[in-house]
Simulated assay, not measured.
Amino acid sequence: MSDDHTKVQEFFSARAADWDTRFPDDGPAYRAAVAGLGLSEGARVLDAGCGTGRALPALRDAVGPLGTVLGADLTPAMLEAARRAGRDRDGQLLLADVARLPLATESLDAVFGAGLISHLPHPAENLRELRRVVRPGGLLALFHPIGRRALAARQGRQITPDDLRAEDNLGPLLAGSGWRMTSYVDEDARFLAVAVRAN
């Protein structure tokens, strides 16, 4: 395992047990983001870097009982927290690195990533791997339950020009990784960038 992966695991392992209680009011924001994607009944979707699986119930509701919902995370403690919360009933949990997903090429209709982009060790390469598993015309949603400015304030820092989630940075990053950004929202109540897989 690389040093980057070890750092991510250590960060989230230390926070897994109380993650949901630290952010108890995020559920409606997750539901609204998933609803806005317009996923079809029966669709196949991955929550990449699913953490404690907070998006899985909304994803299950969106794709219905015949859809496929997968949640992949690198940190065993986060997946265990998801199981304790009963979210494994809404989707299959996978201990997996989003840099090397154990999924067939073009096997998904969409990928949802909450708080994912800032934890990717090699963003362009990692976004290409997400593209690999999504069919042409499929979706990528990069989400956070609060916007960039509100998140920076919560963490006691300023937004910097090199922030990957800035529209001027994210659009070209996605384009260079085989995605076309179709919408971008960055407001205090949420961050949501949606992209379509280019052919």
Rank of each mutant, 00 (worst) to 15 (best):
A110W: 00
F143C: 00
L120I: 05
R135I: 00
V134R: 00
L94S: 10
R128W: 00
E106R: 12
A110L: 01
I146M: 15
R157T: 10
V111R: 01
R132Q: 07
R132P: 02
V98S: 12
R149P: 01
L93E: 07
V98T: 14
L127W: 08
E106T: 02
P123R: 09
L120P: 01
E106N: 12
V133H: 09
R131L: 05
S118I: 04
E106Y: 14
A99S: 15
H122T: 04
D162H: 15
L120D: 10
V98G: 11
I117G: 07
R148H: 08
Q158G: 08
A124M: 10
L103C: 06
R149Y: 05
V133S: 03
L94I: 02
R132S: 01
L127V: 06
D97M: 09
R148Q: 08
G147A: 01
A124Y: 12
N126L: 09
R100A: 15
A96H: 06
L139P: 03
T105W: 14
P123D: 14
G113I: 01
T105H: 14
F143Q: 02
G138T: 02
G115M: 02
G115V: 00
T160G: 13
L139K: 04
D97V: 05
L108A: 04
D163G: 03
L164W: 15
R148P: 00
P145D: 07
F143P: 00
L94P: 06
A141I: 00
V111D: 01
L164T: 05
L93A: 07
P145S: 06
S107D: 05
L127R: 05
T160L: 14
R135H: 10
L93S: 09
P136R: 10
A114G: 07
L139T: 00
A124L: 13
G91L: 11
S118M: 09
L127K: 07
L151D: 13
P145I: 00
L94W: 14
Q155Y: 12
L95I: 06
H122E: 14
R131W: 08
R148S: 09
P161M: 10
R100I: 09
R135S: 09
L108P: 02
L94E: 11
A141T: 01
L164Q: 14
I159V: 15
A152S: 06
R132H: 06
Q155C: 07
A99W: 12
H119S: 08
L103N: 07
T160E: 15
Q92H: 15
F143D: 04
L120K: 06
V98H: 13
L108I: 03
A150N: 07
N126W: 13
A141P: 02
I146A: 06
G137T: 03
G91R: 12
S118N: 12
T105D: 15
T105C: 10
D163I: 04
Q155L: 12
P121I: 05
I146S: 07
P161S: 11
P161N: 12
A153E: 15
P136C: 07
R128A: 11
L101R: 10
D162N: 15
L108S: 06
H122V: 01
F112W: 05
A124G: 10
L120C: 03
Q158R: 15
A99M: 13
A153C: 03
R157H: 11
A96G: 11
T160P: 04
L95Y: 13
L127M: 08
E129D: 08
P161Q: 13
H119P: 01
I159G: 09
L130K: 09
G113H: 04
F112K: 00
L120E: 12
D162W: 14
L93P: 06
G156F: 07
H144Q: 14
I159F: 13
